[in-house]
Design a protein around this nucleic acid. Structure first.
Lengths: 359, 359
DNA sequence: ACCGCCTTCTTCATCGTTGAAGTGCCACCA
DNA sequence: TGGTGGCACTTCAACGATGAAGAAGGCGGT
């Protein structure tokens, strides 16, 4: 820029104005500046330097518990991103997808070093260092789903808004639905309970309660509450715990719980992707759904209707929109209190009355 | 940072080192620096300033023809993003999704102002000012699909790599497949031909040839070449042109071409999403596929197998990976020449032999 | 003829950091 | 005792831009 200015014998500020404030200089001079820039191969004002000087960069960061590849594979997180971008894009804000990593230090470094004006963080475990790193940056933050508002309060993060759902109540509802249909032998297929990958397999109640992913913890608590209220001994309910929310894990989980005796008549999955795998396993083994086994999911992902899956609908896109709105409107405003979006039980063909002979 | 340094009576550089070069100072002092930072509420080195000084920011920009919401809705572009992130993420690079806009000036401004080290641009029309804006920035650029290498050469962009497929050959192949099945009355449902939205409807050959989206142009040319070679008068083939690649446009297009007389026995769609809409229209009208009408798509999107759609498989993820690899490895290297990935005709149930009575 | 005002451009300081090169000190070895 | 080397830290000078405030010149009003 200095060079362009020198070439024409004008000040650097004038060159700057030629790009950013066309009304601040004569059209003629502006033309000459632009021509000189072109001639000298000046690529225009450097956005990084401008960002430094202006104190903002026009981008929102998105930090996700899992890696980016996972984020794109899961329809629900794609909806989240859709919601965020639906708000950010018209405002002219970019979306910086922050790279994940198995190594916590790299995760933290990525958040610490991201050139953004605000952060959306989504689905973190209670003890994820990524969150404290985000808070340390003193940027506006919007949390989606996890960690819970309670945990945020503990960390004392003032500029933080939160949006999610009442996972526990929603889980209770879907479990109550199965109980209404006469199911007594339940089983659960869960996704991750902790950041650190753990041996997959069946887990007892103590482990369930100690999950550091609050969504996992709350949903399990919801299923349990409904079951216990119906007089079911929860310790007899096999709860499988997989690494993440993929059809593959769902299949593994369904295989595990269906192998227990007496065989469960219902498989409750913590997500539709898990349920997808569970349905596959049922199909593979010749178990009729819902005649032999009912399967329910969670999320009402785009795939759920096609699978005929009974599930809990939640507005993932709405979460993203809310989070982004908080951050973009946030200039100076106090963040609103925790916002819980509505959920709705969606009954489809994958859940049915328990077979009479089975009772 | 100055403040933290002053507080401890050390130099600013030492504070910087405490964060970035722990080996450059005694652990003891480092602790004290970090403690003082915490005490004073210093959020750590500002990534923007560091980016300015270092000359790089650790992010790749992604500019897409359509808006972000569209990018997330289309399975093919999600695969593209998956591919890019599969390479960028392990390298610790973020992905900045650059906001689109109907207003070309805003689109250009978004690209000009993006804080990135390199750019992936995808699916732009030949005359999109966004591309020249990107080139002006003199960053490494990787183009996916459009504009064509020929157009890039015209624009004289040296640091530009390109990846795509041979759209024309692939289109010929799928059309030849239909001709082999005995189809003589073809029809085509296309997505956008120009940046500016145009009246949807049937378009003649001159319009087809003048499409400024090279992918559209090439695919149409491919279908046409195969048809003409088989002795079909292309002017009798209804070619519908919609705004974008959505099931809704596909449905509108299929409705339009199926209303022409004599009714086509085959609907060639330029994408699987269009084909999805076309299949829906057939179902709605009681037309059996493929007995009454054959429908073919393009892309082999994740949805194609479920729909039983005959289509052209292309490796969208591979395109993303290639583009990202070029940019990350690119430090100093000449970009490789244009890279065309392989395609493959995938025959499924949606295409079949033309009904004997119809001939 | 003088004043004030607008337009157009300039000056100055500053955003917050980090590479490169430099200083001072101590230890170790011959 | 002098030389060599390494550690721990400092100094200096950018990186490239822009907000705020200021200075020339022209112009209309009284």
């Amino acid at each position: 820029m200095q060079q362009v200015a020198a070439e024409l014998g004008v000040s650097a500020k004038t060159v700057s104005n030629a790009y950013n404030r066309p009304d601040q200089l004569s059209p003629d001079l502006r033309e000459r500046v632009l021509a000189a820039a072109d001639r000298l191969g000046y690529p225009g004002p450097d956005p990084v330097a401008a960002g430094l000087r202006r104190g903002q960069v026009g981008a929102i960061g998105v930090a996700y518990d899992n890696g980016l590849s996972y984020a794109f594979a899961d329809p629900v997180s794609v909806q989240l991103l859709t919601g965020i971008s639906a708000v950010a894009e018209p405002a002219g804000a970019g979306l910086l997808l922050i790279p994940g990593s198995a190594d916590p230090r790299r995760r933290v470094a990525a958040v610490t070093g991201a050139l953004v004006d605000a952060l959306v963080v989504s689905s973190l475990a209670d003890d994820d260092p990524l969150l404290s790193a985000a808070i340390t940056r003193r940027l506006p933050i919007a949390v989606i789903d996890q960690p819970s508002p309670a945990r945020l309060a503990e960390l004392g993060a003032p500029d933080t808004s939160w949006v999610g759902i009442d996972d526990r109540a929603a889980a209770e509802a879907v479990c109550a639905h199965l109980l209404d249909l006469g199911h007594r032998r339940l089983s659960v297929v869960s996704f991750g309970m902790h950041r650190e990958p753990i041996e997959r397999g069946l887990v007892d109640e103590a482990a369930q309660r100690s999950a550091t992913y609050s969504v996992t913890r709350d949903r399990l608590a919801g299923y349990r509450a409904a079951a216990v209220r119906a007089g079911i001994d929860w310790s007899t309910v096999p709860v499988f715990h997989g690494a993440d929310s993929t059809p593959a894990e769902g299949a593994a989980g369904a295989a595990a719980v269906l192998a227990t005796e007496p065989r469960p008549t219902a498989v409750i999955c913590l997500s539709d992707r898990l349920a997808e795998g569970a349905l596959q396993v049922c199909a593979d083994r010749g178990l009729a759904v819902p005649a032999d086994v009912s399967v329910v999911g969670f999320d009402d992902a785009t795939t759920a209707a096609g699978l005929g899956l009974t599930t809990v609908a939640q507005d993932a896109r709405g979460k993203g929109e809310f989070a982004a709105t908080q951050l973009l409107g946030a200039t100076g405003q106090r963040p609103a209190g925790p916002r819980r979006l509505a959920t709705r039980l969606v009954v489809r063909g994958s859940s049915g009355r328990v077979a009479p002979e089975g009772a």
